[in-house]
Write a protein that binds this DNA or RNA. Sequence first.
DNA 1: GAGGTCCCTG
DNA 2: CAGGGACCTC
Length: 668
Amino acid sequence: MHNPSDGDVEDDKAELMIPCFRRNMYDEPLTSYSNGSIISHLLRKTVQNKRALDESHFYLPTSAVSSSTMADSSQEDQSSVSSKDSVAEFASPGSHLSNGASPEGDRPLSDHLQAKRARVENIIRGMAGSPNSRLHGDSERAVSDTREAREAYRENKRKQRLPQHQEHSLNAAAPANRGSSSSSGSSSKDEECHKLKEQLQSMQRLLRQLQEKFLQVYNQEDTEHEDRDGTGTASTAKHDDTTPSKESGFRKNMDEELERKHDRAKGDCKDRVKKDRSFLTHQKEGKNLQETLKHELSKAVSESVDMVFKKLSSTGLNQLSYQRMCHTPENIDVGVERKSQVACNQEQSHTEEPVKPQALEYYESTEPCSPEDQTEALSLVVRKPLLSQLSSVTPTVKRPYPLHHSPFQFNYSTPLHDSQILEHLLKYGPHTNFGGLPCVPPSMDRTSPDSVELPWDAIAMRSKVTSSHLTHHPRTSGLGPVTVDSLCLPHVKMECGDMQSLAERNSYMSLNIQEGLTPNHLKKAKLMFFYTRYPSSNVLKTFFPDVKFNRCITSQLIKWFSNFREFYYIQMEKFARQAIVDGVNDVKGMSISRDSELFRALNMHYNKANDFQVPERFLEVAEITLQEFFNAISTAKDSDPSWKKAIYKVICKLDSDVPDEFKSSTCL
DNA sequence: GAGGTCCCTG
DNA sequence: CAGGGACCTC
């Protein structure tokens, strides 16, 4: 495409860079928004401009350049690369102006130089120009490709330019402002634009200062490294390409443009540069300064972009975006907190000046609305339980997790919603569990799709916890303050009044007449295993008060725990050996968390319904056990037939007290 | 010998 | 998980 003008580029290098510079600065980013035709169009324009200038066909006055009016008819045929087109292209704007620049040849050569100067001035003014005209003008580009091409052409004639991405943002943000550059939006918009403009101007001033210093250094080195410009540009562009953000394109273009500016300025400011050279006598210093300036320059550009973006994000874009979010809150992963915050944002949206970029704040901040406000705003009963769960389970960790994953992780202080209790009371009934163990009977229907799968008694227990045993087991799960302890049904009995009394009677009626052990007893025994691995007969008698103990029953209970231990130790040995096979060298690597496979295996065995919050102490004991096995096996002690006995001896000392709740006769 | 545990088997 | 035998401790 450059072939037509390859031969005569050199003379007007400075000017020729100007259109390129402008495109890179403002127009090229547009291509990233999908319009390839604009690229080719602009490239053609570059060639045409070159030719027009080289041939000194005419002088394009500043006033003409600043004009945004142009006959569409002259733009329709821009696609063809011909001198004729270029003439028409430049002639048209002029012909529409009062001074009516002549198309051909009657322009003296001195005017050419004047034109150069005017264009340079235009560029400089363009950097400090108001974004308004561009904002409005560019918004038209989205209409159609043809329209965009025209508009791009038109833009090419304008002085005022704003970084493309910025305009793009405003485009998306304020479609209502689309229209001619002269049309004004609301007064607040203008204010915003004005502020933006000022900000941009200040940044541009800074940029120019840096640029000048940059040029000094570059020109100082110029004599030694003639080809440095190319590599410098390439490296700069390469550097910026590594930035994956949307800004990178802009920054890249800015840098490229600055490089070109530097070239241009080399031509324009040679005198000044020569003077400057005399001050830069030390190459090394110059290099350092160069690097510093490069850094400063890119930083300034980056900051400028950030500031503009920040500013823009606080204007129409976010008004619209968060309003959209407000209207479709379900599109977001919302807890009720967020929903309520939407309500707050909606309130705020009525004000004309959102102070912060709310689209961002929407996700980051939870402050704007107080919990009281949330409650007030959310009158739906359905949501309230969710709200209370989210806000009270782990106030500091705002992680809404499904209830059915950890049904017992409730805060003691959590007020249980009446409808929730009622729902479960109706669903399961008090008899379901009150007559049995604190845990859910195997036969219990737990397949309810309802998120609250825990038995009603467990729910009821949440609201009131007695808890002497809390002092015994202060450590709780990391997920919630409720320990396994609160799970036990006895809480209900002790604190739930009539209903609990009913359950108690039921319990006695159903269990006291039984002489044998029931599945509920077995389940209770398994849960007790989390606290004690070696319960004495007395302990068993204490915690199974509803069992008529005889030798057989005692033996059976003891046998149960023996079996529990067996499984426990088998698992420990298995995992310890596996760890050794896997190359674990240090016993410190043998830890057990609730995510551990070993824990899951144990939990599956002793807490199959997973409706019991395993006490942290059990994890500790299990970890110690595992480490004991690990040490014994890794030191080949397992060659001794009775090598496990030493381990048993250690573990049996780690028993904890079983929570008093297990003693309750209503438990069994 | 009673009580308890471990180990094996089904 | 139960049954049963071997073994240990008191």
